[in-house]
């Protein structure tokens, strides 16, 4: 059959639209995973035992099972309990929660490594525990944790391809649509791969810049 890339330009509009969806989904899921990660970290560290322990079990389940399986659970599970969300919303929730758990692991370690004296100092000037966490401990922890969270976000971008399996028309599914019309899987999947690769390189570039700024600010 051979390869023929001349079929690609005619379908580039679908691919570009898919690309926009991928970026949108990745950004939304990244934001969810970042703030979710902070909330999860605080629950895992400071919530009462009765909440903390089941929560940790849940985190453990999320880290011990594949993302694809989790996406199936969320997508079909929400339907079953009567919440009929569009696939892309389910995809964002699935990706966001999955990576929130990984971010939470990083943030927990970072919070614990912020000097104990910081909390004590904040309490001695009269801040409550919650205020001290919000204003003193967490901001420092978040700064420490930005470079490794960057790695998670790059992984999130690549894993966003999985939401195509539950029918979200992002880059991967757009490539599949173009393939349906042309029967040229190699060409279109390769083009999709190159788009992912390009976004990935941009993210790595941004990550390096941020790391350098953090390094300077210390």
């Amino acid at each position: 059959m051979g390869l023929d890339f001349t079929v690609v330009p005619a379908h580039l509009d679908i691919i570009l639209l898919g690309c926009a969806w991928t970026i949108g989904i990745a950004v939304a899921a990244a934001l969810l995973s970042f703030f979710g990660g902070i909330v999860f970290a605080v629950i895992a560290l400071y919530a009462p035992w009765i909440i903390r322990q089941p929560f940790r079990l849940l985190e453990w389940v999320f880290m011990g099972t594949p993302l694809l399986l989790q996406l199936f659970l969320i997508y079909f599970g929400l339907v079953q309990i009567g919440i009929d969300l569009p696939a892309f919303v389910a995809g964002i929730i699935g990706l966001g929660l999955h990576f929130a758990v990984y971010n939470s692991e990083l943030i927990q370690t970072a919070i614990l490594s912020v000097d104990k004296g910081q909390m004590e100092a904040a309490r001695t000037v009269g801040l409550s525990r919650g205020q001290a966490l919000r204003k003193v401990v967490i901001p420092q922890a978040v700064r420490d944790v930005i470079p490794p969270i960057g790695n998670n976000m790059i992984a999130l971008l690549k894993d966003s391809a999985l939401v195509s399996v539950i029918g979200v028309s992002e880059l991967t599914l757009s490539a599949q649509r173009a393939i349906g019309a042309t029967y040229r899987p190699f060409e279109f999947y390769l083009v999709a791969a190159l788009f992912y690769y390009a976004i990935n390189l941009c993210m790595e570039w941004v990550q390096r810049r941020i790391e350098r700024r953090i390094a300077i600010s210390r």
Partner: peptide, 17 residues
């Protein structure tokens, strides 16, 4: 730098080409 899923698709669906 690219999704494993896409790599898998290239190999499985695109391989015969």
């Amino acid at each position: 730098g690219t999704p494993a899923l896409i790599q898998l698709f290239i190999l499985y669906f695109g391989g015969p080409q």
